[in-house]
Design a protein around this nucleic acid. Sequence first.
DNA 1: CAGACAATAT
DNA 2: TATATTGTCT
Length: 317
Amino acid sequence: MREEEANWFPRWEEELPSPEELMPLSQTLITPDLALAFDIRNPNSSPQQQQQQNQSPIPISPGQLGGGGGGSIPSPPSQPHSSEFESAELGSGNLGDEPARTLKRPRLVWTPQLHKRFVDAVAHLGIKNAVPKTIMQLMSVDGLTRENVASHLQKYRLYLKRMQGLSAGGAGNGGGPLSAADAATDHLFASAPVPHHFLHPGRPAPGDHYLPFVPVLHHQQQMAAAAVIAAQQQQQQQQQYHHRQVGQFGSPPGGQFEHGFLTRQLPSQQPPPQPIHRIGGPVSAQTPNYVEDLGSATAGGGRKVLTLFPTGPEFQA
DNA sequence: CAGACAATAT
DNA sequence: TATATTGTCT
């Protein structure tokens, strides 16, 4: 059953990650060992993009989902902050001393929330202006790169195209056998409402049009990005982790998983020829009480990814 | 350089 | 599988 998307817009903002949460997600779940092993540091010479690592003792709330989706927020540990920020200097102007060139960011996990933000951004920009860079800026999600968006956008466009073809052709559509891959990805895309005009450009949406959208200004700009590390294991590469207190979401026995954490404070300099307003409040990409389960359905695959973000207090409008 | 897009890689 | 990366063209 689908929800009526009649009025998704009015609540558009409300569903965004609440400003309330600037929080603790910063707690990385990476064990110190691993962090060192990965030699997390200044990533590359890009003028943008930084990574931070945090080794605080993880006070995050243990166990919360489980299977039920309970949604009850156990205990917002809420530490005041206690974060020691490492001032990462930008690579620009200073580089060449780090072997860390091959470091890779953790794979971004497109959670429904994050994807929604993406869709909102595209919707506001309009089809023509919706290009990776602008989308990225509008989303203003920490840690998001243009390439992340580009990749996602590419996929999203294919999705839209399929949707169009489907609804339009109806019968004689001989063009597209749905592949398993497509069906799978649809799930994510289906989790966010697709503005009518996406599918039918040039046609006004019935009884529903776009709002100018109000930027919610916030005095805070610090947000964390939702990112997830995919532990990349080579066929014979294994590492030992001792997790200290990391036992939260029922960790699979013997499973390896790490939480990555990308964060970037906006470059604070946007030389965009055009002023771009940010939609919604401050953004952090994360899922409220939402947990992406280990997708380890693949037998023998071996790759497990965990993604979850305990957001403390639920958002309220 | 930035973007679209297909193919390929992990 | 989902996302990243690469290559080519514009």
